[in-house]
Write a protein that binds this DNA or RNA. Structure first.
Length: 985
DNA sequence: GAGCACTGC
């Protein structure tokens, strides 16, 4: 409906107009999530003269809202009948107060439980109550006022029977309304001028437009004031006591806030006991206000309504504050450069411990080394050992959890030693072996060493083995622990170094039969840890508010925010842009840099661009920034305390990715990211109590939450028969282990007594999941190994084959369906994608045209090349039968028969031997085809149980291929006779 | 009609 002009409106409408500003403010907060600051400015401008939807739209467009936002907003504002969604929004708003009360009482309860000090508990309760009571009272007052007004209107309506009377009333109320409106406008203008002066007063440059607006407002205000006198303007509302007005007719803000601040001061200095948390963790707190940029130590601060209060809890001590490497040594001649590097080596924290360290290694076979990042352990220990002559007896191996780390560390060490990378110092990672016969110091990924075990079970060519970053506990390191511990028993000449940054080195020590622990101080600056005072209900919102708080109140330095995933990062980016948009030049520039693994590389590199002077960078990152990459210049870390973690259910074979609270170790690691180049601050968006009591000590090691059938096969291949007795540091759940053994048995990789078969031995050669390996081994029989390795490569390259931008969904889907013609199934579709790409000479252009991800394809090519090489090793001939779809499907079935599912009457599927309801994932080409009998690549739990990558098979094949697993009778009984109705789109 | 933390072989 249209918004009527005031002179036509009824009393009711007038009432509505009167509250327009409040309504708009509320709407903006609830619909668009704007900050108060933006809203006040916006609403004042908006309500000046506007009276129709069209005008509103125009106004809104001036403020650079998207047309979607505008439609939503205008509709919300003008529509009288609230939709469900809207109602929800209203309700949310109303419930807000109650929620706050509830959360307050919750935290109060928690405090009560935890606090041993009754009185301090009481203190906290009172403080909490006081704040809450005020908030509640305010909202109750407002609500009552609204109700009374509504009742009045009703009454008037009932009483008036006569039209004339109605008109008279309208006139009266119209007059009242106009008077009222005038008052309000003036008040607003006054406040606006005040706020402008106060918030963005001196020092901050305003744009020309902003300046002229302000001037205009001041002029109008002065004229009206002279004419009417300010005091009459607002006699029916709360008025600022005179004492606050300064001689210029403005309001003295310092006095205005003095009373409020007095309370905090009293609490701080006068109270004998503090709340439990204050006692525990000090009383630092962070306030909000743009003027803090220029001003320090004033006795009041402007507070935003939605500000978050932090309490400073502790300081992680810095251990060494020497300068970092200076790598700008290009102009030196070779010898001088080596000399300079040698000098630099001596400045590393580890250098002082060189002799002690060498002695410790000499005296003990196994040594646990604990050292923070930056101590130099990774680059130096290998060199010390080389210098001490350990390389005469064999190589020094050092494992890293990541490829990049292995490469860059090796490169660094080769420079320090003045040798060519790949000669004395080399690295070995998948797809790339940069070592030679001369190599004595070898860096490699942990998975690579595990592969080496297969060829050299006693690691005879190594004299020293160093497992670096052991605290990360990847599957590979965990398995390596067990293996190296074992070989160390009979190879007394082998030295073992386990290096970790974690605090629980004792666990490592215990595991390695009480090996001594050698501690090396790191090179980190002190970091202040801040916790929130009360739990935050919405961590996303809290993170945004905190970013702005830091931006406006803290000295220069970039911000790093840890979020859980791509979706969240994109949402946060949008929210942040919205909130800063209205501020224009009033705040310093905020550069927002998202980063997650799926982000195209060229965009990822944005985060390494140095921040321009006067600006501040906000990096919104997933866990990728926790370990995998280091960003310089980060001074502030915001840690909401969550991450996505994979979990695995051995019973159903289902994997899921869940948002889980981080562990203390992980929180510590995140905090440490702020202190690499200078003193840092970490803001945790949870309370100190949460940290102490709700977080796990360490992250559950990967081996306990993933499918380990691949690991089991590798271990079996190493001749470890009794896996239950294998010395895992943290053993995987027995059920997972049994499931893996069962799978390997049904794939014929193990015989009935659990020994490796010939098939199993061949399978173990492939760095793939056993089912994929089996598929490849089986391709020999069906003469289609060329096709099968393409499929295996595509499947193990990940789910990110097809790219689907929001704005080109239709095109992307159409392009994708090209590969699915004839409902061949997802496996064959992947094969088609790979072959077409190959036919087009691995063209990047082709990828763009077909909405296929280049990165994934290149990875698939690398994997395929590797698999091709391995085929030769296991003596499988390359053979191709591209057009014989049945053979290809049979080969796939040979690996994936345990993953079969049958269509049910309901349209859902029932999977395998441990029946489980599942659905075809909507991204599958068969999502609407619903074949009777399918095999799937993986089962994932997201919003539903989904099967990803589906191919239709015939039940007879299953019996033919896996007679030990299926009987035709069972399958035929299970297949539905009547097909469910297929939905069409 | 969904959604993909991060690695590694």
């Amino acid at each position: 409906m249209n918004f009527e002009k005031p002179n036509q409106s009824s009393t009711l409408k007038k009432k509505k107009n009167l509250g327009l500003q409040t309504r708009i403010s509320d709407k903006l907060i609830s619909i668009l999530g704007y900050s108060n600051r933006t809203i006040v400015q916006f609403v004042i401008n908006l309500t000046k003269q506007t009276s129709s939807q069209i005008e509103f739209r125009k106004k809104l467009e001036q403020f650079e809202f998207s047309s979607k936002e505008i439609s939503l907003f205008v509709q919300e504002l003008f529509d009288e009948i609230p939709t469900t969604k809207k109602r929800k929004n209203y309700r949310k708003k109303e419930e807000h107060v109650e929620e706050e009360e509830e959360s307050c009482s919750r935290s109060r309860q928690r405090r009560k439980v935890s606090s041993e000090d009754e009185e301090s508990d009481e203190e906290a309760r009172i403080a909490c109550d006081k704040e809450e009571r005020e908030k509640l009272e305010k909202s109750i007052r407002e609500r009552d006022a609204r109700k009374i007004a509504e009742r009045k209107v009703k009454k008037v309506r009932c009483d008036v029977k006569d039209r004339k009377e109605m008109r008279k009333l309208r006139k009266i109320s119209r007059e009242e309304y106009l008077k009222d409106r005038e008052k309000k406008k003036l008040e607003e203008m006054r406040d606006e001028i005040e706020d402008e002066k106060y918030l963005f007063g001196d020092g901050l440059k305003l744009s020309e437009l902003e300046n002229s607006k302000l001037r205009y407002m001041k002029d109008v205000y002065e004229i009206v004031k002279k004419k009417k006198g300010l005091e009459d303007v607002c006699d029916d509302e709360y008025k600022m006591p005179e004492v606050y007005d300064d001689q210029f007719g403005g309001v003295n803000q310092e006095k205005r806030f003095a009373a409020a601040l007095q309370r905090y001061k009293e609490v701080e200095s006068g109270a004998e006991q503090k709340s439990w948390e204050d006692q525990q963790i000090g009383n630092g707190s962070l306030k909000f206000g743009s003027q803090d940029v220029n001003r320090n130590g004033d006795d009041y601060e402007y507070l935003f309504e939605d500000q978050i209060e932090f309490v400073k809890a502790s300081v992680m001590e810095g251990e060494n504050e020497e300068d970092m490497f200076d790598e700008s040594s290009d102009g030196f001649r070779e010898k001088e450069r080596v000399q300079k590097l040698q000098d630099e080596r001596k400045t590393l924290p580890i250098y002082r411990f060189r002799e002690d360290l060498l002695k410790a290694i000499h005296d003990h076979q196994v040594l646990i080394i604990v050292g923070e990042t930056g101590s130099g352990k990774t680059t130096q220990i290998t060199q010390y050992l080389h210098e001490a002559g350990y390389t005469k007896r064999g190589k020094i191996g050092c494992t890293q959890p990541r490829r990049v780390a292995a490469m860059s560390v090796a490169s660094r060490v080769s420079k320090e030693m003045g040798v060519k990378l790949g000669n004395e110092v080399g690295y070995s990672i998948r797809f790339e072996d940069n070592t030679s016969e001369k190599t004595v110091i070898k860096y490699m990924t942990d998975g690579m060493l595990l592969r080496e075990f297969l060829g050299e079970p006693d690691l005879a060519s190594y004299s020293v083995l160093m497992v670096d970053e052991a605290h990360e506990r990847t599957i590979s390191t965990d398995v390596l622990f067990g293996l190296v511990k074992d070989i160390a028993r009979f190879r007394s000449d082998l030295k073992l170094i386990i290096s970790s940054a974690s605090l629980d080195a004792n666990k490592f020590s215990d595991y390695f039969d009480g090996a001594p622990i050698f501690r090396i101080p790191g090179r980190r600056f002190p970091i202040e840890i801040h916790y929130t005072k009360a739990p935050e209900a919405d961590y996303m919102d809290a993170a945004i508010v905190t970013i702005l708080q830091i931006h406006l109140t803290q000295p220069p330095g970039d911000i790093l925010v840890f979020l859980t995933g791509q979706e969240e990062i994109e949402a946060a980016e949008e929210l942040l842009r919205q909130r800063t948009r209205g501020m224009g030049t009033k705040i310093a520039e905020l550069i927002i840099c998202p980063i997650f693994a799926n982000l195209p590389l060229e965009l990822q590199n944005n985060i390494f661009e140095p921040t321009p002077k006067g600006a501040r960078k906000v990096v919104l990152a997933t866990n990728i920034a926790e370990t995998s990459l280091t960003i310089d210049g980060i001074s502030y870390v915001i840690d909401p305390g969550f991450c996505k973690m994979k979990s695995y259910s051995p019973r159903t074979g289902m994997e899921s990715l869940l948002v889980t609270p981080v562990s203390k170790a992980s929180a510590l690691q995140r905090a440490g990211r702020s202190g690499r180049t200078g003193p840092g601050k970490c803001f945790r968006l949870y309370t100190a109590f949460n940290y102490q009591n709700d977080l796990e000590e360490n992250t559950v090691p990967e081996i306990q939450r993933t499918n380990i059938s691949n690991v089991v096969l590798t271990l079996k291949c190493l001749g470890i028969d009794d896996l239950m007795a294998f010395d895992f540091m943290d053993p995987p759940p027995a059920e997972t282990l049994l499931k893996a053994l069962e799978l390997l048995y049904s794939l014929n990789a193990l015989n009935s007594v659990g020994q490796l078969t010939k098939t199993g031995r061949r399978m173990a050669e492939f760095p793939l999941d056993p089912m994929l390996s089996k598929m490849i081994v089986a391709s020999e029989k069906y003469k289609c190994s060329e096709e099968i390795i393409s499929i295996a490569a595509m499947l193990s390259a990940g789910n990110l084959v097809f790219y689907r931008p929001k704005e080109k969904k239709v095109h992307a889907d159409a392009a994708k369906m090209n590969f699915h013609t004839g409902n061949v199934g997802d496996h064959i579709a992947l094969l088609k994608v790979y072959s077409s790409w190959e036919e087009h000479n691995y063209s990047t252009q082709w990828c763009f045209e077909n909405f296929v991800q280049v990165k994934t394809m290149k990875q698939a090519r690398d994997i395929r090349d590797q698999l091709k090489g391995l085929l030769e090793r296991v003596e499988i001939e390359l053979s191709s039968s591209f057009n014989d779809v049945e053979s290809i499907k049979k080969a796939i079935t040979s690996g994936f028969f345990p993953h079969f599912a049958l269509l049910q009457r309901t349209g859902a599927y029932r999977t395998g031997r441990n029946p489980q309801t599942a659905h075809i994932h909507p991204s599958s080409g068969l999502a609407y085809v619903l074949p009777k009998c399918v095999i799937y690549h993986e089962l994932v739990l997201t919003t539903k149980e989904y099967m990803r990558q589906i191919t239709e098979v015939k039940p007879e094949w299953l019996v033919e291929i896996a007679p030990h697993y299926y009987q035709l009778k069972d399958l035929q009984d299970a297949v539905v006779k009547k097909r469910p109705r297929v939905k069409h789109t």
